[in-house]
Amino acid sequence: DKTIKLWNLETGKEIRTLKGHDGIVYSVSFSADGKTLASGSDDKTIKLWNLETGKEIRTLKGHDGIVYSVSFSADGKTLASGSDDNTIKLWNLPDLELDSLMGRSCNWVRGYLQNNPNVSQSDRHLCDGIGTQK
């Protein structure tokens, strides 16, 4: 039914239903810290879920076929996915966090902001304090 159900094993009662995939869910994997669930689907995506809230964190796209398998590394920093497209992909999860994305983005655009004559003086400092150049 394109959902993921979480169950309390002691009581046998459903905790919550996760909805968001557009196809059959073939695989799920809990992160080592128990805070995140990854799911792979025939909609060719992987979804990461916050288990405390039940909310979708992010959708990973990159496979051209059904995602049959997902598995976290022991340290939780990498997710492996196996697909019907005959590939296995490794996803670097820390790079998907907002702070990391903002840092990398600012590192890329900092030169443009500081050196382009069409950028206002106040906008030249939009990335101050973000990324590797603080």
Rank of each mutant, 00 (worst) to 15 (best):
K2M: 12
K2S: 15
T3G: 01
E10K: 13
T11I: 13
G12K: 13
K13C: 14
R16D: 06
T17N: 09
D22G: 15
V25I: 10
Y26N: 02
V28P: 01
V28S: 07
S29W: 07
S31N: 13
T36C: 05
L37N: 03
A38W: 00
A38G: 07
D42Q: 10
D43V: 13
I46C: 03
L48S: 07
L48G: 03
G54F: 09
K55P: 00
E56W: 01
R58T: 02
R58A: 14
R58H: 14
L60D: 06
L60I: 13
G62E: 12
G62F: 15
G62H: 12
V70K: 01
F72W: 10
A74C: 02
A74W: 00
D75Q: 06
G76F: 11
T78R: 10
L79D: 05
G82K: 04
S83N: 11
D84A: 04
I88P: 08
K89D: 07
K89Q: 11
K89P: 06
W91Y: 04
N92D: 15
L93P: 03
P94Y: 14
P94D: 12
P94Q: 12
D95W: 07
D95G: 05
L96F: 14
D99T: 09
L101Y: 04
G103E: 05
G103N: 02
G103P: 03
S105C: 14
W108Y: 13
W108G: 04
W108H: 15
V109H: 05
R110G: 09
Q114M: 09
Q114R: 15
P117K: 09
Q121N: 05
R124D: 01
C127W: 05
G129Y: 04
I130M: 06
T132L: 12
K134V: 11
K134L: 05
